[in-house]
Design a protein around this nucleic acid. Structure first.
Length: 443
RNA sequence: GUGGCUGUAGCUCAGUUGGUUAGAGCACUGGUUUGUGGUACCAGGGGUCGCGGGUUCGAGUCCCGUUAGCCACCCCA
């Protein structure tokens, strides 16, 4: 009986695994550079946790089952609910701002397609306990750094920035209450993948006959790309007094945010685009998504503010903002841009030996080098020199250490730089002292 | 959940109107090669032609079903 991996799940052979880890390494390095702390949480959680956050409809998209204890459980489809639980449980005893990240696998029972699998990794980065735009800016800056560190630049990706608070003001000016606004936002989210006529029909449920004109005004807002136009538009909305004040404050938040992003060097990646509202209703303020520059593929990353979620899941009232970046779309983009290094994993040294006796001598040196952390390949059987050099070359090793009977007699080992072909000799007993210098400066 | 396209060696593929024992390149293993590597030459291993059924004297090839992959829709945390 032959088995294959389940649909939407991947096997990671060493080469692919190295590519995956290449991405993870950069994720972790950048997150740590921003002084985010790494946390982790279970892969299996109570099903209720996800129903509480996203509603019953979510169950159809989960890997869920009943365990032997009769508990209904699910593989996590995302990290945020677990994270909210962790943060909520420690409540106010954690020092703020809380800046945490995680790299973990998530599972969704959906039909796999381009950029979407059933098991995928995500980097999650979140800040709790800070409600000002500086926290949003910190994450947007980090998101930019992440993509830059992987070798992408402004010709490859952009960040679309939007704000659900602004939408609530705009829709309030249209005379809509909170629940009508929510349904309009859901429609806006689907705007570019729905026929215009269908959108008008859907809007008619809220707006009646004026839906057509209303949609026109929405489209005007979505087409705004510069901040001056946006702030003028917002400040001139016909709003009641309380809301008018809110609008002023919010425009100030935008100014702060944009200034910080500019200072962080991420300004050139930002595109104001109120067409982004993000599907789920729990987002409360700024929202953003990173896209491949042509906007063709699935989003590379997405996030925003979710100030009420921690409380909803049983924790204290705590402001929060975060984003997630998936490995699948990022890997796809890196691949099309040829930005994944070919040979990531190569030994520092490879031993080449004349015969059984020489192999034993070599092993003693090899073991010591290994114990110091050098990456050393050692032959497991006797083979001719020609063959060994061929293998040595293929291994991508930096240096070959050649143990022939003649060298061993003289207490030396021959060292060959496999790239340049340059050769030299070193005294065997000095090999541990010389190894670091060798790697640094060559022969 | 719905639809379209595609399944021949680890990978990329060839395989004639249905006709003997299914092929190539790359990769892998060994050799030419007991002292010097990417080339070359020789040899070898590896296939239930995705799976099941049907038509036929005969199916990798035609038909039906099924499964997997890709792509699109639904959904997208």
């Amino acid at each position: 009986m032959q088995f294959e991996s389940l649909p939407g799940f991947r096997d990671f052979y060493p080469e692919t695994c190295a590519q995956r880890n290449h991405i993870f390494d950069h994720w972790r390095k950048v997150a740590q550079a921003f002084n985010f702390l790494e946390y982790d949480a279970p892969v299996l959680e109570p099903l209720e946790l996800y129903i509480e956050k996203s509603g019953k409809e979510i169950v159809g998209q989960l890997f869920n089952f009943e365990d032997r204890g009769g508990r209904t459980v699910a593989l996590r489809p995302e990290m945020t609910p677990s994270l909210a639980r962790l943060v909520g449980a420690k409540g106010n005893s954690l020092k703020r701002p809380i800046k945490w990240f995680n790299i973990g696998e998530n599972y969704r029972y959906e039909r796999p397609q381009k950029g979407r699998l059933r098991a995928f990794y995500q980097l999650n980065a979140d800040i709790f306990g800070e409600s000002g735009p500086a926290a949003d800016a910190e994450l947007i800056s980090m998101l930019t750094q992440l993509l830059l560190s992987l070798g992408l630049d402004s010709s490859d990706f952009m960040l679309r920035l939007s704000d659900r608070d602004l939408w609530l003001l705009i829709l309030a000016a249209e005379g809509l209450d909170e629940s009508s606004s929510a349904s309009v936002l859901a429609i806006i989210d689907k705007l570019d993948r729905t026929e215009r006529k269908k959108t008008v029909d859907k809007l008619a449920c809220v707006m009646g006959d004026s839906a057509e004109n209303f949609l026109g005004r929405i489209e005007d807002v979505i087409n705004i790309r510069d901040f001056d136009t946006l702030s003028n538009y917002i400040l001139n909305l016909p709003l009641e007094e309380g809301l008018e004040e809110k609008a002023k404050v919010r425009v100030d938040d935008w100014k702060q945010l944009l200034r910080l992003i500019e200072s962080a060097g991420a300004g050139e990646f930002i595109q104001i685009d109120l067409g982004i509202v993000r599907g789920l209703a729990y987002y409360t303020g700024f929202v953003f998504e990173a896209f491949e520059v042509n906007g063709e593929d699935r989003a590379l990353a997405g996030g925003g503010r979710y100030d009420s979620l921690v409380k909803k899941l049983g924790g204290p009232d705590m402001p929060a903002v975060g984003f997630a970046m998936g490995d699948v779309t990022v890997a796809n983009l890196l691949k099309t841009k040829s930005l994944i290094p070919k040979q990531i994993n190569r030994p520092d040294f490879i031993a080449i030996t004349g015969g059984t006796a020489e192999r034993n001598v070599a092993l003693s040196d090899v073991t010591q080098l290994r114990s110091l952390g050098f990456q050393v390949e050692y032959p497991l059987k006797d083979q001719g020199f020609g063959k060994q050099f061929k293998d040595a070359n293929q291994s991508g090793a930096r240096f070959a250490l050649i143990y022939g009977s003649e060298e061993i007699e003289r207490g030396v080992v021959k060292v060959r730089d496999l790239q340049s072909g340059q050769e030299g000799e070193i005294i065997r007993k000095n090999i541990l002292q010389l190894a670091p210098e060798l790697l640094l400066k060559g022969i």
